[in-house]
Design a protein around this nucleic acid. Sequence first.
DNA 1: ATAAGGCCCTGACCGC
DNA 2: TGCGGTCAGGGCCTTA
Length: 284
Amino acid sequence: MPELPEVEIFVRELAPDLAGRTVTAARVFWPRTVAAPTDEEFSARLAGLRFDRFDRRGKYMLLGLSDGSTLIVHLRMTGKLRVLPGDAQPDKHTHVVLDLDDGRSVHYTDPRKFGRIWLVDDPAQVVDKLGPEPLGEAFSPADLAARLAGRSAAIKALLLDQRIVAGVGNIYADESLFRAGIHPARPGSSLTSAEVERLHEAVRAVLAKGIEQRGSTLGDSVLQNYLPPSGRPGRAQEGHQVFRRTGMPCPVCGTPIARIVVAQRSTHFCPVCQGGEWAIGSGE
DNA sequence: ATAAGGCCCTGACCGC
DNA sequence: TGCGGTCAGGGCCTTA
């Protein structure tokens, strides 16, 4: 699933291909993919606009256009954006195609149809609820502690809440909690300040390494959930310590990695390294 | 206000 | 081989 590192690589790879290109036509095959405005208005407004800015907020791609509006793309589970030759045929999973003035086309494909695209005047209309960028200065141990205060939900669930911190998904949540040595089911408010500091460091380190390794490509055929526009798979999955490693030895202590469900998400952790002795109300 | 559960979707996988 | 059932999963919506 594309999370912050994967989306970052997407934007970086798309930028040189799209910069200065003008959209000549927009074709929508699955209207629900376009969250706003209506698909007719989407196509009508997009024609004639030129890409000139490229940014990311959390897991959202922000593609700026020449009239000041922004094309926002969220890939969710299985969305992909590729720049293809103009004669490339849309396949059964292609939901939106943007034709460009250089004869090529941007294809949005998404087998799960969970991804969404917006065309808005102000990106805040879509991303204003997001918490701080984890790699930015606004994200500090104090900020994280404040957002966790009084929260009884599992820390794993809170890490997945985009209002706490933007861009962390299932993979990097598990990896961050492992790096910080924190059990994923711990109530958010039960973390000590030392643990919050470790978690803050872990989130940043894990995401930064994910970007460095160009994201995690956990392929399974059509559902290959992440392949950047260049088609070069990422390598971050090779560094995963716990994610989808159920039963395999913990890289630190050798204990088999366990899998539980937290917040309806599969969750992987080391029962020993991640606080085997924790219990609600036990202190320490 | 927070927490928990359902929903959207469909390929993959399992059992028969 | 084919069919039915189940699962995964981010974000949004509803319910308590």
